[in-house]
Design a protein around this nucleic acid. Structure first.
Lengths: 215, 215, 215, 215
DNA sequence: AATGAATGAGTTTTCATTCAT
DNA sequence: AATGAATGAAAACTCATTCAT
């Protein structure tokens, strides 16, 4: 009643910006970038449109700000859950768990991040692709350490980047699947992906590969 | 020069429909559904807008038609490359190769299919999600056969669906990565994903799983 | 089955024109001029649009042709029901009966005639107003004869035209009311209007008028 | 010159809404609903189209708003001119005078009200038919009082509704005729219709009816 | 700091009409 | 005689964006 009824006036900029971003994340996550309208954002935020433009800039800018903030939160959550002194496999494991935990408790954030991820070429590619690339690089770093240690040959090493991309995609897809199957516990989903990543990659590193010729 | 310069007149409906669909796939793949305008489609197709509406219906209908056609082609390509009498791993392998071959030679088709896949909630979710679901089910069928044969327990069996979703996501992501690294040969990319899928899943089926407690 | 299934080919012009006009009357009477589309007319007529344009001209022309034909039918029906040698009141009575009979058995014709009657300024004013004027003049002629005979003064005579307009409007409105109350027999409706016209006008002619001063 | 030349800026909503409605009434009365374009309304109103949609909704809504406003004015004018304590004939007389006075001084209002009245089936039938029905009921109430007092039999009583419809139609038609003959004074037109109504109906109530058999 | 008022520029969609066969 | 193919032109409507207060 108090929140919706009477618009609070004269708030400091910081607070207003947060209000607006919260509303924007909600609206973008519900309708997607294109179907979302600035009118709805302003309504949900309880703030007039000119304020949005004054504080956050154009619709595109606003979306970018959302992505940045939510991506930052996701990355923090993962980084916070991982101890960089642990062995790579434990790091991956902790990272995956943190990722799925984040998705579970921040569905809207996840949606807004993931929904437009694919749409290359759109007006916001940069923000979104940058974030995705960061994720891939993170995984790549871990995999590379393992590969190097095990003395993997050049060709195989070059593949870690591709594997990382594949794993990130697997994670995204699995997270989506999970949203439709909420009964599955976090650690179960995480362990599925962990196995896919670790065993699949591990075998490969060890030269234990599937080949058609074997058949 | 001849196709673009001078509008060919009075073509039979079939031909025009194909022209329009071709143009639509191109335009949608370049800009995405929302940024694409019917004006541009009509221009690229060399056909006036009323023809588009007369033959293919609304923008949404047109997009759905694109998805249906391209998804059909992709599925045909895969089905055509797979011999259902082979062992599951060989089927998966052939399927993956066909998939990547299709992506390589039909970049636009792939983009238009993949681009909007994530955007749940749009007006065309149905077409697009249906296609994705078909893909997941296909993989699931293969994985399940293996799991059953190896006497996997119930819990693990239940996971095949999730694994399939993850693998499809991995495939999509890897295909995207590949578009940026065209030097990599088809069979290499395919084998990477094959290993991830087969070895990762195979280990899991055999009870050879990674667990945090081991550390 | 035969009428709808297979378009009969190579019919003489007269027949085609009738087909088209029939369809047009039906379509116009159902949707009104503006909501009606040439596509629907052509479909209902079982004739391609170019034929319509070739035979009947533009949409406006087509509508005018409908009005002309139906108005002609109505006028014929009335004229055929009236014996010009009778006394004016009997002529009016017969005319009214014929009018209501026509409305009862040609609802579509009536609708297409009446519906757009009011819309002065539209593209078809002329046809439609001409028809209405003819009707008013017909009534006027009858009323004038009576007025003259009864030695009505100039001022009152001048009023017959106005009274005729009023009576035509009353007839239209009553016909509409009747369409919603089909249980009422034709002669009852006709007699209501007859009384309104004859007694009301008759009193007036005889100087038996209502005046506010009397109260 | 000042109103049309320079667009007055930043007016309160109320004022703009009135401006828009005024313009809409004018445009609709000139071209009718279908031929009128929102572009023209916006131009005449001196307001951009988005304002129209923001304040008054769709074209249909706008038209409905016009009808409602003008019908309200007409009804008020009539109600304001009638003393409900007077005898029925005086009420009818005062009502008719008020009606014609309104038509005389609000030609546009009358046109916009009357023009589409007939077009049943359009998207706005409801507004327009509702208004007409109100008018008919008003007359019916008066006529019924008389009929009851004079001990009219059931059958005849049932006819008052039809007579009311006829009289309303007569009034509409007469008003139209009058627009083309502006020299005739208001009270003359009103008295014509009054006589038609009162004497014609009065005779009927008294059993003084015209019958064909008398001839 | 904050907003109601306002719009330019675009979108999808439809329809009367005509050409080429 | 007859039509499938084709379009120019315009209509309703929306939205991101900004001005004046």
């Amino acid at each position: 009643m108090s929140v919706e009824d009477k618009r609070v006036k004269r708030l400091p900029r910081e607070v207003r910006e947060k209000q607006i971003l919260d509303a924007a994340v909600r609206v973008f996550s519900e309708h997607g970038y294109h179907e979302a309208s600035m009118d709805e954002v302003s309504e949900v935020a309880g703030v007039s449109k000119p304020m949005i433009y004054a504080y956050l800039g154009s619709k595109e800018d606003l979306f970018a700000a959302c992505i940045r903030r939510e991506a930052g939160l996701l990355m923090e959550a993962i980084a916070g859950g991982v101890d960089p002194d642990l062995a790579p496999d434990m790091q991956l494991w902790m990272g995956l768990r943190s990722f799925f935990e984040f998705v579970a408790s921040n569905k809207q954030s996840w949606r807004v991040l993931h929904r437009q991820v694919i749409s290359q070429g759109g007006p916001f590619s940069e923000e979104v692709l940058a974030m995705r690339t960061r994720a891939i690089n993170l995984v790549d770093a871990l995999l590379s350490r393992v590969a190097t240690k095990k003395g993997m040959d050049d060709h195989a090493q070059k593949s870690t980047e591709a594997m990382s991309a594949a794993l990130v995609g697997a994670g995204e897809s699995l997270a989506d699947w999970w949203l439709d199957h909420p009964a599955v516990p976090t650690r179960t989903v995480a362990s599925w992906l962990m196995n896919l990543a670790w065993m699949g990659f591990g075998d490969m590193v060890e030269g234990n590969v599937w080949t058609p010729s074997a058949h």
